[in-house]
Design a protein around this nucleic acid. Sequence first.
DNA 1: TATATATTTGACTGATTTTGGCAAGTCAAT
DNA 2: ATTGACTTGCCAAAATCAGTCAAATATATA
Lengths: 95, 95
Amino acid sequence: MIIGQKLRELREGKGLLLRQVAAELEVDTAYISKMERGEKNIKKEYIILLAKLYDCDENELVAIWLADKIFDVVKDESMALNAIGIAQKHLKKLI
Amino acid sequence: MIIGQKLRELREGKGLLLRQVAAELEVDTAYISKMERGEKNIKKEYIILLAKLYDCDENELVAIWLADKIFDVVKDESMALNAIGIAQKHLKKLI
DNA sequence: TATATATTTGACTGATTTTGGCAAGTCAAT
DNA sequence: ATTGACTTGCCAAAATCAGTCAAATATATA
């Protein structure tokens, strides 16, 4: 949703081709295309590699990636915001 | 994590046996046990049925269930709270 | 104690999902 | 027309999941 756009921006910012990124991650070109368009979800491992490749702060990219996964879980739920609030509270208590 | 406890409390509050709940949902008894102990995740469909069965507010139960799913996604991530913040902002913008 | 009933555990299976590749396709710029 | 970049659809292998069954435990009660 959002991570895909971000990855595409980063790649284009670096002037890299799908093919080149694919070679770096050792996957098929089509796969990168699908990641960037949100058609496949992305393994954390790849996010780490991409952060390095794009000289981008790893934590920032991981956060966006993770936010995307959260969004995916709640997107069709009317109780989404309530649930996020609960999870947040729960998590804060844990720290 | 949390939804399981909640469901167990509700069931015990109603004085129902696993077997009886299982019959209601038309699944195996062991399955209910596992749901309550967080060993299996729970389909939304079941949450709805259980809310009815336990005379509990459906939205409230769904929110807890959803919070649990969010928690599951982020629980081992150091960027968990950041990600939740991003997802929250993103979601609010959408409404 | 013995027995009955409630719950948990673990192994198992069929169904579904996911991963990622491949080949053919589109689209733009030569 | 050809080339190069990206997309699309289809597919096989692998992983995950839902739910069951039978055996094991726990708990209560006679």
